[in-house]
Nucleic acid binder design. Structure first.
Lengths: 341, 341
DNA sequence: GTGAAAGCGCTAACAA
DNA sequence: TTGTTAGCGCTTTCAC
C-alpha cells in the first residue's frame, strides 16, 4: 500500500506536516489547503498509517480487551458495548481470549501490551488474576471487570453479586418456596460465591434450610447428573437458581430429562438475560446483568487516563435486575404430593 | 513504557540488531547471546513494539474482522473460531462492527485498513457490499464470508444455503407435513433467499403448496403479529422453518403466546445451533452452520496471501447439518381437528 | 555471526 | 499559518 503522507503532500502542493495537521486536527490549517489536501488524499486513496502515527506520537488509538471465552455471549456483549463506546472517538478494539487458562492469559496479555494500547480491559479467568503483575510493570491504564480480586486496588467494574443473589432468593421465597438448589458452573470464583452468599442470607433470615450448592461443570451430562438427584431424589427442591448462563441451561436440560415441568413442578431463576429466555416456553425469570452500563463504566475509567492524566483508581459496582417472567410460580402442593408419592 | 530494544541491547552487551534477530528469529544468533539477550529482556520486562516492528518490516501480524453485529452469537462465534486459528501463529485480531449500516461499514473498513493488517475478513451488512471498492484499491488480502455478492470474484467462504433449506424441508415432509411457513428476518439477503429456494424446490417436487414467506423483522412484537396469522388463522400451517436465529425465537415466542404446543400442534426447525436449543423443552431441531470450519477456511485463504504470495482467489461452500431433536414430529390429526373446529 | 547505520510513515519542535 | 527536520522503535542492508 504505497501511498504515504508525502505522496499526498506532493500532489496537494503542501508539506507533509500540513497533511498531518489536516488529518489529525492538531493545528489549524487554512480552509483552502484543507480542501486541497482532502481531495488529493481522496484521489490517491490515502489513509493515515496508524502504526506509524502511534509510533511517532506515542499515543495509541486502540484499546485491548482480554476475556476468558469469545463464545460466551456475556463476554462478547461486553465487547460489543465497549466497541460502541470507543468507536465514536476513533478508537479501535483488539480482542483476545485467554481460553480460561491463566498461563494463556499471561501470554495474551503480553502480546496485547506489545501494541502499546491506550488501555486494556480484562476479565481474568480466575480470582487470582496472577497476570496482573505484568500490567503493574507497565504504564498502560487497565480496568478489571466482572472478576476482581478482593484486595485489588486499581480500576474495576463489577456487579453487586450479593444483591443479585438476594433478589433471586427473595422472589422465590415470596412465592412460597422452601427448599432451594443453587447451580453454579464453579464455586472457585469470588463473584459466584457472592451470589451464593446473597441467597444464603435471605434463606437464613427466613429461617429456611440453607440451599444445596451444586457445581454443574461445563457439559450437559455432568450437569444433568448432579442436578438430577435433587429433582428426582428424596430431598426434592422446588426452587432452582442458576448463577451462570450455563447453569441455567443445565437446570432446564435436567428438568426436561427428568420430566419435570417448569414452573409447575419446579421454579427456575436463570442468570443473564438473553433473547431466547424471552422466547421459550415458559419465558424465563432471570437475573439480568447490565452489560451495556458495564461497557460504559469501563470506558469512562479508561478515558480518564487517556491523555496521561492520572486519575485516582475507582471501583464501580453495578446492580443486577430481576426480570420476572413465567418460569417461577408458587410451589404446587399437587406437585409435592406427586413427587413424594 | 520506556524500555526499547536499545535498552536490552545495552544491558546484554550486544547490538540492537542482534536483539531484533533473537526475537524475530530472522537470522541465526549464537546460543550464548540468545541467552544473554533473553535474560536482559526478561529483567527489563521488554516486549517488542508491534507498531514499530510493523512499520519497519512492512508486515503486520494482525488481522481485522468486520461484522454486522457483535451481539449476534453467530458472528462472534466466527470471530472466536478465527481467533483460535490465528493466535497460534502470533497474530492478533482487531474487530469492528458495521452495526448493519453500509455507510458505517465503509467507515469502519477504512479505519481497519489504516492498521495495514495482514488480512481482513468481512461479513458485509448487505449483498451489495458497496464498500468492496475500498478494498479493491488496496493490496490487503481479504475474504468475504457468509454474505457474498453473487458476481463476486475474490476469496469467499459461504454456506450451501440451498442445501440447508432442502434438509429442513425434506425432514418435515418426511414427517408428513404439508403446509409450511418460512420465517426470515429479511428476504433482502441472498443467503436467506437461497435457503427459501431450497425449501421451495422440495415442496414443489412433492407437489405441495409453496411455503408462506414471512419477514419477521427484528422485534418480538412484529414477529409475533406476523406469524400469529398462520398459527391461529384459517390457513394454519403445521411446519415452521426459521431461517435465522431471531426467526427461531420469533416462532417460539409466537407459539407460546398463541398457546400452541411444540411439537404437538406445530413442528419447528430452528436456525443456528446454540446451547439453549439443546436445553429447552422441547429440545430444538435445528440447522447447524459449521462455524468452526468457516473460521478455518477463512484463515486458510488469508494465510495463502500472507508472504506476498498471490494465490488465486478461491471460494468455499460449506454444508450445514440438520440436528434432529424434539421440536419436530409428525403432524397430529388431533391438532388439525381442534384448530379447524 | 555481529555491529553500524539507514530509513519505514508519521508527528512535533522549531523556524520562517 | 506553513515548511523543514529530527526521530519514535524497529528491521534490514551492508560491512566486517
Amino acid at each position: 500500500m504505497p501511498v504515504s503522507i508525502k505522496d499526498v503532500a506532493k500532489r496537494a502542493g503542501v508539506s507533509p506536516g500540513t497533511v498531518s495537521n489536516v488529518f489529525s486536527g492538531n493545528r489549524a490549517v487554512k480552509a483552502e489547503l484543507i480542501e486541497r489536501v482532502r481531495s488529493a488524499a481522496a484521489e490517491l486513496g490515502y489513509e493515515t498509517d496508524r502504526a506509524a502515527s502511534q509510533l511517532r506520537a506515542g499515543k495509541a488509538r486502540v484499546v485491548a480487551a482480554l476475556v476468558p471465552d469469545l463464545n460466551n455471549p456475556f463476554f462478547t456483549s461486553l465487547i460489543a458495548s465497549i466497541e460502541a463506546q470507543v468507536r465514536d472517538e476513533g478508537f479501535d478494539i483488539i480482542v483476545a481470549s485467554s481460553h480460561g487458562d491463566a498461563d494463556e492469559e499471561a501470554r495474551r496479555l503480553s502480546a496485547l501490551l506489545a501494541w502499546r494500547p491506550a488501555g486494556i480491559v480484562i476479565i481474568p479467568c480466575s480470582d487470582e488474576f496472577a497476570s496482573r503483575n505484568i500490567l503493574a510493570d507497565t504504564q498502560v491504564p487497565f480496568v478489571v471487570a466482572d472478576r476482581v480480586p478482593s484486595l485489588f486496588q486499581g480500576d474495576a467494574v463489577t456487579m453487586d453479586n450479593i444483591d443479585a443473589g438476594t433478589k433471586a432468593a427473595e422472589h422465590l421465597v415470596a412465592l412460597g418456596h422452601r427448599r432451594f438448589v443453587v447451580a453454579a458452573s464453579t464455586l472457585k470464583l469470588q463473584n459466584i460465591r457472592e451470589r451464593c452468599a446473597g441467597i444464603e442470607a435471605v434463606l437464613a433470615k427466613e429461617g429456611l434450610a440453607p440451599p444445596t450448592l451444586i457445581e454443574v461443570g461445563l457439559d450437559f451430562d455432568t450437569a444433568t447428573e448432579r442436578l438430577g438427584v435433587f429433582m428426582e431424589g428424596e430431598q426434592q427442591a422446588s426452587a432452582f437458581i442458576a448463577l451462570t448462563n450455563f447453569a441455567t441451561l443445565g437446570i432446564l436440560a435436567c428438568a426436561h430429562q427428568t420430566g419435570l415441568s417448569v414452573p409447575r413442578d419446579i421454579s427456575v431463576v436463570g442468570f443473564d438475560d438473553y433473547s431466547w429466555m424471552h422466547a421459550v416456553s415458559p419465558p424465563m425469570t432471570a437475573i439480568r446483568q447490565p452489560v451495556k452500563q458495564m461497557g460504559q463504566a469501563i470506558w469512562t475509567r479508561l478515558r480518564g487516563h487517556l491523555d496521561g492524566r492520572s486519575e485516582p483508581a475507582s471501583r464501580e459496582k453495578l446492580t443486577c435486575e430481576l426480570v420476572v417472567r413465567a418460569s417461577t410460580a408458587a410451589p404446587s402442593s399437587l406437585g409435592d404430593t406427586l413427587r413424594i408419592a
